[in-house]
Design a binder for these strands. Structure first.
Length: 336
DNA sequence: TCTGGGGTCCTAGGACCC
DNA sequence: TCTGGGGTCCTAGGACCC
């Protein structure tokens, strides 16, 4: 099992077009203006040396690394580069599962995965000029963790044998699927490391985290994962559009107009999908950051702009509080 | 000078039914 | 003057990932 992960993908796409940026701190995110609201999508390794990383507010990034070049995300260029990479991966004799722009799993047979990994790195570089890291593992979880540890421009193997040697003493949020909230809850139970989580009682965790999540956490810590590599194209469950406003909206009529606009954009996405939506959900983030959602089922499955806008307005009407708004979102759900 | 945009999955609680 | 126990569906919220 291989996991291919492009190095600093969104920043690398910009460097490809502007070679003079190579080696420089490049920060991509928002609309490229670090004085506005927005976060870092990808920082080049030179920028990461200043403590700039994905998810960091752009304004903070500008303070930490004032000499960085700030750029907006060029979606079309990233789409194109990603397609080229994935087409290159599909030339190999393997089932390929794409995850977003810059990642893929490859289920490959063969007794020399390091050689295959090296070949993948070479072919991707040749075809696109982009560097990637390849993780090798006995399952998707191991391969995914391996690519993260092997970055940048490397090949690393992580197996059941060396799993605890490499990860055992690390905090639980080193695992794929455990974030800061879950790590904190685990710490409160006296579980700090991967080894400790692996030794936890699944029934005990089921009571605290639910019947699915609890036992899954233990399997995660043990490096166990039997999920298959799925090569069939991804079918979206939902489509959404959202906007964070540079200035909070304090006029509810304006909020209604913005929801209608977002609903119209979602409707055109839904129409392009050629699958009717069954439910519309409106998301409101009140200043400073409290987020609420309300939804409304469509009277009948539909791709119609009017029906989707009407459902969005009905969903908006369920919000009791008309306080200043920072963010609005509209999501359409498809039938399962 | 806080905290994007686009997704997925799971949980918990209430409604409803038998 | 008390009201069980399941099962299922729907909704809102939480957490996580890229």
């Amino acid at each position: 099992m291989l996991h291919v992960d492009l190095d600093q993908f969104v920043a690398a796409v910009e460097v490809l077009r502007r070679p003079e940026l190579r080696g420089r701190p490049v920060v991509v995110g928002g609309d490229g203006d670090p004085t506005k609201r927005g976060v870092v999508s990808t920082a080049s390794y030179a920028a990461r040396a200043y403590g700039v990383h994905s998810g960091l507010p752009l304004r903070t990034a500008a303070r930490r690394c004032p000499d960085a070049v700030f750029l907006p995300v060029d979606r079309e260029a990233c789409d194109a580069a990603s397609s080229e990479v994935m087409a290159t991966l599909r030339e190999f004799d393997a089932v390929v599962q794409v995850l977003g722009w810059d990642e893929a799993f490859l289920a490959v047979e063969g007794d020399d995965p390091e050689a295959t990994a090296g070949e993948i790195r070479g072919r991707v570089r040749e075809a696109t000029g982009l560097e990637c890291t390849v993780g090798i593992g006995g399952n998707k979880l191991q391969a995914k963790l391996a690519s993260g540890l092997g970055k940048p421009a490397g090949v690393l193997r992580l197996t059941g044998e060396d799993w605890f040697e490499v990860l055992g003493e690390r905090p639980t949020d080193a695992l794929w699927g455990i974030g800061p909230k879950t790590a904190k809850r685990l710490t409160a139970m006296g579980v700090d490391t991967v080894t400790q989580l692996a030794a936890a009682d699944p029934h005990d965790l089921a009571e605290r985290f639910g019947p699915t999540t609890g036992p899954w956490l233990v399997r995660l810590a043990r490096g166990q994962d039997d999920s298959p590599v799925v090569g069939t194209p991804h079918v979206a469950r939902s489509r959404s559009r959202e906007t964070t406003y540079q200035h909070d909206l304090d006029d509810w009529d304006e909020v209604q107009r913005q929801v209608l606009y977002l609903a119209q954009r979602v409707a055109s996405d839904v129409a392009a999908e050629r699958r009717p939506a069954i439910r519309i959900v409106v998301k409101v983030r009140y200043a400073p950051f409290a987020t609420r959602t309300h939804g409304r089922a469509l009277p009948a499955p539909s791709t119609e702009v009017k029906a989707i806008q009407q459902a969005a307005l009905a969903a908006l009407a369920q919000f009791a509080e008309q306080r200043p708004v920072r963010l609005l979102g509209v999501r359409a759900e498809f039938a399962r």
